[in-house]
Design a binder for these strands. Sequence first.
DNA 1: CATACATTTCTATAAATGTAGAACTATTAA
DNA 2: TTAATAGTTCTACATTTATAGAAATGTATG
Lengths: 110, 110
Amino acid sequence: MDHKDKAVIFKALGDPTRVRVFEFLRSCCCPVAVGEEGEVRPVEGPTVGEICCSVMGSEKISSSLSFHLKELRNADLITMERRGKNMICGINHETLAGLADYFGKSNPCC
Amino acid sequence: MDHKDKAVIFKALGDPTRVRVFEFLRSCCCPVAVGEEGEVRPVEGPTVGEICCSVMGSEKISSSLSFHLKELRNADLITMERRGKNMICGINHETLAGLADYFGKSNPCC
DNA sequence: CATACATTTCTATAAATGTAGAACTATTAA
DNA sequence: TTAATAGTTCTACATTTATAGAAATGTATG
C-alpha cells in the first residue's frame, strides 16, 4: 500500500459526517447475538436508511449520505451488500486492523 | 475529542505528500543515539529544509511544504520548534498512541 | 404490469484545498 | 548595519469536495 492509498483511507475519515457513520457502524457491527438454540451469530449490520436515521437524524435518505458511503467503501473501510430492497452495511475489520498496526506496531520504537 | 477533531486529524493525513512527511518524521524521530560516554539521548529531528530534500526532493523550501506542515501541526500529529535559523520537526507520540487505540483497543469486539 | 420503496447517479453550485510565486519575518554572520 | 539563510504568510488560481434536488435504477408487492 503506497502513500496515495493510505491518503485515500485517511481522507475518507477526514470528514465529521463520515467519522460518525464509521463509528456508528463500528459500534453496531461487532456484537454477536445468541439465537434460540444458544448458537452465536453475527448481528446483521444496518441498512442505509437506518444509518440515515441514526447519524443524520433524517427519515429521508440523502444523496449526500450515499456520497459519503461511497467514499468509505472506496477506502475499504466499510462493506455494503444488497439484501432485497435494502443495502446492508458493515465494517471491514481487516482495514481496521491494518490501521491499528500502522499507528501502533509499525512505529519502530517508543 | 469529538467527531470534528478526529476528522481534522484524518484530513491532515488525507494527502499523499503529508503521509510521506509524516512517515519520514516517524522513521527518523524515534531512534535514540548513544553518546561518547555511553549515554542514550533522543536524536534531534530534521529541519524543514531536510524534510524538503528527503520528501519533496528539492533544495528550495516551498510554501506548499509549509502549508502541509501547518496542517500536520494543527492536527497535533507533529511538533516544530525553532533552533536558531531552523525549525526542528518531530512526531507527537501521544497523538500516535491515541490513533492506535482508536483503531485497536476501542474496537468493542472482534 | 403498475406502483411503491430504497438507494444511487446526475447536475449544478458554493466552499474548501493544494500549488506557485512574491513579499515578508526571524535569526545569524560579515 | 547589511546581507544571507531558513521559513512563513499572502495572493491568485485551478481543482476537488460537499450538498441539494431531480431523475434514474433495482427490487418487491398488489
